[in-house]
């Protein structure tokens, strides 16, 4: 009787120590599921989901506050990837948060720019270059096409233009099968 109690207590003690050690040694910083969700999101930082950036949205999804279908730039593929990750059923994009659009690029009409710096302050990825009372310009390779710079412009000189296809971005399309016999 006493032996059994002793053995069990010793076992409990050892396990407790082990668990305690593991909790310190393998401590997880932050929430790994947030990182995984964030990795799927397109990082446009456009705020269409209702959160100020992709990471806050990822945190909201992980906390169960936001649904997985609020990101139009991620498109249907993004929803499917999130559903896969979280073990949920994919659902169509929520139209409230905007429609899927082709990738766009912001272009400043440099003739009309008055150098107010409002767009620079709005850009979430610091992709606009310029100084007060000097012309601004968009660094095309860094622009995510989030459109956040368009609204603040007091002289309406920023346009969103679709990114033209070139030889380097062209892709072979899905084969169109001629007969309907294909299973």
């Amino acid at each position: 009787m006493i032996a059994a109690i002793l053995v069990l207590s010793a076992l409990a003690g050892v396990s407790g120590l082990l668990l305690g050690f593991a909790a310190i040694r393998f401590k997880v910083e932050g929430d790994p599921i947030v990182d995984k969700i964030d990795a799927i999101l397109p990082q446009t930082q456009c705020g269409q989901c209702g959160y100020p950036g992709c990471r806050p949205y990822a945190e909201a999804i992980a906390a169960g506050e936001a649904d997985i279908n609020q990101c139009p730039p991620g498109g249907e593929n993004g929803v499917v990837a999130l559903a896969d990750l979280l073990g949920r059923d994919p659902k169509p994009l929520n139209a409230e948060h905007g429609a899927v659009k082709p990738k766009m690029l912001a272009v400043i009409d440099e003739q009309n720019c008055i150098g107010c710096t409002l767009c620079i302050q709005a850009c979430p990825v610091d992709a606009i270059l310029g100084a007060a009372k000097h012309m601004h310009t968009v660094i095309a390779s860094e622009c995510t096409g989030c459109e956040l710079c368009v609204a603040p412009c007091p002289v309406d000189c920023i346009d969103m233009i679709p990114i033209a296809q070139t030889i380097t971005t062209w892709k072979w399309t899905y084969p169109s099968v001629t007969a309907k016999a294909a299973a």
Binding site: L41, P42, Q43, Q45, P124, D126, E142
Partner: peptide, 13 residues
């Protein structure tokens, strides 16, 4: 790759 760059730039901002 582009998304990763945007993430870093947003973080830096």
């Amino acid at each position: 790759q582009k998304a990763e760059l945007a993430r870093q730039r947003h973080q830096a901002r």
